[in-house]
Write a protein that binds this DNA or RNA. Structure first.
Lengths: 263, 263
DNA sequence: TCAAGTTTGTGTTGACAGGACAAGAACCTC
DNA sequence: GAGGTTCTTGTCCTGTCAACACAAACTTGA
């Protein structure tokens, strides 16, 4: 061990190795019907000029979540409180930062429609990027942040299947189609409007009707009922994205080899 | 910030706050048809004498997983490699350790049938405890380890629903009932043998038949086919534990008010 | 005023999955 | 053999869901 102050249970904090602890935040929002994440441009080496997740040191007497919120605000100028903040995982490969050992605790957050991606506050530049662009590796990212983002995207996609978190992307009052467009943006897929409507309106306490309806003057069509989020956190039977592991191709309506007999 | 070496992006590792990073491991195994976890008795203050998760410092040039494995082996004397090791989460409430700021990265692991809970190696005592006992708060635990264990138990329970991890609790070759008893132990519930059998044998590449059968001399009954784990990591349609959110009580067989008409 | 278009919401239908339960299959002991 | 135990398959029935049709409610334009 080479550390003679070490107690028999290997746990004496007064002689701890030099490891820095930081937090990083993957912030999701939906703009223009696309899932976007908030990045800042690094102002110093290493990886100067590359885009990175907002983040920084955890202070000595600061909780991890508090540090994540503080860095999100400080580095991006975002003033709105996230509608959701959740730990994603901790990344501590010894050489992930070339300067020294840095262990980072990653969080992911949902921000309701961020009107304008405000320029960063701390002399840094902040901007929104669509997830499909990031997934296409169209952006050079600092450190292992590409990997962290990849895992965060997978997390938010799967969480929408079995939780009611999608409503957190919406304003406090919204319609079923607005909610559907959240799912379509996050999953990057098209969803049948009728089945989706039935699913979310019958899921217990997912949505609460406010009694109101939209003014259709804007876009034509039947006015939609307005809902606010219910108390339920989980969806009893998940909404499945992409029936990809479709057991059988399940060809609907096999070509009628014989004229349909009247029944 | 009060830290003039801080760069504009708030990220200069040469001036990091004094925070120690440790790992803790929640190790699950099944003994005597019960889900058990491995704990060590603390040999020094604080919480001296209390039971705790095996864990300790992350060394400067050591990965987090490597540190978890090392501490598991060092503190418990376990020689077998875990069949699964996965990050659970990171716990960093500022006052969770009274001596200084300690951020711990928790892992959970699966160990196939540990024959004997070997006494600890590092002058510490190691032992297995059934999860139901720990859940009943029958044990005083150090720090916030009770909370960590609670979250680990929930994690392993839910992972068994949609992954094939249950097989990792079994020896390399096993029968369907052995696998069922894993589910029953982890979920602390009874499962219908027939439906379970159909479910796991038809789930694509969950199990692979070795061709062999058990020798029934031991316990009587029809010999069981022997399987080894397949390549699949996920179960296409999850096995649900406790149909608790049962939509309707679904009274089977409503009392026949009228004699059953032949159809 | 009416047709056409658009969006919202509901009905219908057929396939499928899964729980309750029964029963067959393959072995043991007595 | 009889009876017991365990493994494995079959049956029935119900709930869920995707596909798709269609009704409802509104706008716009002829």
């Amino acid at each position: 061990m080479g550390c003679d102050t070490k107690a028999p249970d290997g746990y004496d904090p007064r002689a701890y190795p030099p490891v820095a602890v930081t937090v990083d935040v993957v912030t999701f929002t939906i703009v223009d019907n696309q899932l976007q994440i908030l990045l800042v441009r690094r102002g110093q080496r290493p990886d100067k000029g590359l885009w990175a997740l907002p983040g920084g040191f955890v202070r000595e007497d600061e909780g991890l979540e508090a540090a994540a919120l503080r860095e999100l605000h400080e580095e991006t100028g975002v003033v709105a409180e996230p509608r959701h903040l959740e730990q994603l995982g901790t990344y501590g490969t010894p050489d992930r930062d070339p300067r020294m050992r840095v262990v980072t605790v990653a969080y992911w957050a949902i921000l309701a429609n961020l009107p304008e991606p405000k320029g960063g506050g701390d002399a840094a530049e902040a901007s929104l990027f669509s997830v499909v662009m990031v997934e296409a590796d169209a952006l050079k990212l600092a450190f292992d942040h590409g990997n962290i983002i990849k895992e965060a995207v997978e997390r938010v996609r799967s969480k929408l299947e079995y939780t009611t978190l999608a409503a957190q992307f919406c304003p406090p009052e919204f319609t079923v189609s607005q909610l559907r467009r959240v799912y379509e943006a996050v999953w990057n897929a098209r969803i049948d409007p009728g089945n989706f409507h039935r699913k979310v309106t019958t899921s217990p306490d997912f949505l609460r009707s406010t009694g109101g309806s939209t003014d259709p003057r804007a876009r034509g069509g039947r006015p939609a009922k307005i809902y606010s989020p219910g108390e339920a956190e989980y969806i009893s039977s998940p909404i499945m994205r992409s029936p990809s592991p479709r057991p059988t191709p399940r060809r609907r309506r096999p070509p009628p080899e014989q004229p349909k007999p009247p029944r």
